[in-house]
Design a protein around this nucleic acid. Structure first.
Length: 313
DNA sequence: AGCCAGGCTTGGT
DNA sequence: ACCAAGCATGGC
């Protein structure tokens, strides 16, 4: 197969913008109608068309399996929606964001990102991850050397007349493990630094195996991830859902807790444990997708509320 | 200025 | 089993 640096991936019911901006990934940025990001060592530029998702890479590639995998364009998405519970909150949440999808991330990048996520706003997680990648990640070429010379320059933060910022691969466990805690703290991750460093060292020296997680069932995989410092139930569920494809994983953070409380238990206050138990049975085999819809629904509802509040002032 | 953020760990009942 | 403090930093 010949080398290519662009492709159209057919996709229906796919809201690319909402998906890349929904708090599952932290390195994608919208630049003039395009979404710029990095998948593995590929610098990628995506845009949504009527037919699907058009992708361009800075470096030519032999195939596109890695991108189909990341974007999950080939799943039976209508079947996922069909399995959602038929109740008013879910109808509202789905209507609020048609085509919101789950991506399939690299486990290490996902784990590291969510170790850094605790008690942080999404904008801040993005900043920390960006610093981490700039400090410790491998710099990646922004333009194709061969194909269509000069036609494409992919980079985050391009403004007219300005060179695009360099892009970086997400740092490997080895690269993080070689850092000091002070160097990590310089990325503004605060008390999360020792947790990230410990995870990186365990993975780098082989005492913790991210690949073997795939062989386990959900409960065992969750327990295994929770052995890592700084990884509790919520972060474990995020990694299981976003990186390993455990569709039953149901991360409960503040937003989702509020969603469950307000939408399903409006009268009485339900304990965190009660909410988790309810979620485990109520949302079916694709509970993780349902969770993402509830999360996005609550978050955007709040954002528009604050925006309108601001304009009124 | 002060509250709170895609939480977890530890130490108290 | 449940509750609270403490953690580091910055957006709003």
């Amino acid at each position: 197969m010949s080398l290519e640096n662009e492709i159209l991936l057919p996709a229906r019911d796919y809201n690319l913008a909402a998906t890349l901006d929904s708090g599952q990934v932290f390195r994608w940025r919208a630049v003039g109608g395009f979404w710029h990001g990095v998948v593995g060592k590929q610098v990628v530029r995506l845009t949504q068309t009527a037919a699907g998702i058009h992708a361009e890479t800075a470096a030519p590639v032999e195939h596109w399996d890695w991108l189909r995998q990341f974007l999950q364009t080939e799943i039976d998405f209508p079947a996922v929606l069909k399995m959602f519970p038929d109740d008013e909150p879910m109808r509202q949440a789905v209507a609020a964001c048609r085509g919101l999808r789950l991506l399939r991330q690299d486990p290490w990048e996902c784990l590291a990102s969510f170790i850094l996520s605790s008690t942080k706003q999404i904008v801040q997680i993005r900043q920390i991850v960006a610093r981490l990648c700039e400090q410790f990640g491998e710099p990646l070429p922004l333009r194709s050397a061969g194909l269509r010379p000069g036609s494409l320059e992919i980079g985050v933060g391009i403004t007219p007349g300005q060179r695009p910022a360099l892009q970086y691969a997400f740092p490997t466990p080895q690269q993080i493990a070689a850092a000091s805690e002070a160097e990590l703290r310089a990325c503004k991750m605060g008390f999360r630094a020792p947790s990230l460093l410990a995870a990186a060292r365990q993975i780098a020296d082989g005492s913790f195996d991210l690949e073997s997680i795939r062989q386990l069932d959900y409960a065992a995989a969750r327990a295994e991830l929770m052995k890592l410092r700084g990884v509790g139930g919520k972060i474990a569920d995020c990694v299981l859902l976003f990186a390993y494809g455990f569709d039953g994983a149901f991360p409960v953070d503040g937003w989702v807790e509020r969603a469950l409380q307000e939408l399903y238990f409006p009268r009485r206050r339900a304990s965190d444990k009660r909410l988790r138990k309810f979620a485990a049975t109520h949302f079916g085999p694709h509970a993780g997708y349902a969770q993402q819809y509830l999360f996005h629904y609550m978050r955007t509802r709040n954002l528009t509320a604050t925006a309108s509040r601001r304009t009124r002032l």
